[in-house]
Design a protein around this nucleic acid. Sequence first.
DNA 1: CGGATCGTTGACAGGTATCAATGCTGGTGG
DNA 2: CCACCAGCATTGATACCTGTCAACGATCCG
Lengths: 227, 227
Amino acid sequence: MKSITIKQAWDGGEKCLHCSIRNLALFSDLQQDDFNLLHQPINEYMIPVGDELYTEKDKAHFVFTIRSGMIKLVHYLENGNYRIVRLLRPGDLAGIEALNGSRYLHHAIALQNTDVCRIPVEVIEQLNSNTPHLYKQLTASWQKVQSDADVWLVELTVGNSRQRVANLLLYLDDFSEEGSFYLPTREDIGALLGITTETASRIIAEFKRLGFLQVERQMAKIDKSKF
Amino acid sequence: MKSITIKQAWDGGEKCLHCSIRNLALFSDLQQDDFNLLHQPINEYMIPVGDELYTEKDKAHFVFTIRSGMIKLVHYLENGNYRIVRLLRPGDLAGIEALNGSRYLHHAIALQNTDVCRIPVEVIEQLNSNTPHLYKQLTASWQKVQSDADVWLVELTVGNSRQRVANLLLYLDDFSEEGSFYLPTREDIGALLGITTETASRIIAEFKRLGFLQVERQMAKIDKSKF
DNA sequence: CGGATCGTTGACAGGTATCAATGCTGGTGG
DNA sequence: CCACCAGCATTGATACCTGTCAACGATCCG
């Protein structure tokens, strides 16, 4: 965690209660009273582009909720190569493996400036033993992990490079309702899809030439009618 | 569930208490008393090769523990193609997504004759609200799903076909301590690795010629020193 | 302005899909 | 018991796709 910027900290769950993404997040089912059970601070951080939220080496003491931005979960191979195994968007949980007391399973790196809430494991355990309202959300989160992983596998590792890039663009487009979405670097696209940087670049360039894709800065729009 | 063979049914958890794979399974932390909470039968079935344990269409009422054999979880694509997204071996859970009351996420098909225990969702929910001993195992199961999915992604979708087949053989070899393991059909190997049946066949044949691999019936041995 | 990083493009070799034909094997019925 | 069949495995030929190595362009930032 190089240069994490702390934005806020508080003792109760007052802010959580009125959180703008609460309906997406872990605490959506909690009742007013449940928030009084929070005895450890939940902090909000901004992770700048390229910084790590956590790494595989870190002892896992916290679960994170993504409030805005995007996080990549990276698995490094022995040979120095790496593969991006998942992308996390607002409402997703990062590091739920912390609930098992183990270490984190990935390197979590910000693709954009990303706001997160850092929830101590003890808070979740305490809530779990004192209110029944969290359990369901946790189960749902685990299931989302499973189903995301499957979609990932099926959509992004099947077919030739062109199909995979197209599927990735559609997937990224789903992330954002504003019509444009963050386009990762060609190297990251390669790591996402298991192809080389050059192949990723060629295909993105081709899509731009054909008018399927417009890119400005790092933001992209696609013309879905042409897919 | 075409021709599922029922082997046993019982009311209490007597058999679970003395189950030979209990240390691998969901109930490993349960105490003697906890088993008295089981008020619905847990049945044991044998699923013959090729039969379905469940499909995506099925309402998810049960979680299954694999006692022996092997199950493939299959995700079908719209175009009729399919991809195997995970293999389940003894001790693994199938269909934990049932705990969310949803439908199953995959087709679960037996690759070998497979013994399973069928646990009603209600049993798990009841245990969860009456004893604290199950929660940890459930969390561990969810985490295993996540970590298996990542290993799968990293080991079996990276590199060229030869490397992937080699990794798959090593992965399958881990399944069985008896020195030999079940070798899937070439078509299934293709669906596991995202390559064509022909490519899978060519590489398996090459490994056999080179002496890396011996196959008898559907059982295989590998010479790890040559990998 | 200069350097660093990222993106694009070309040439070529090697890998993979595709289409097609042929071998192999286990199971079935005569 | 044997012949036959269906399904699976193997192999070949070819076109296409992708990785690799290399060069150059674009953009950002100090």
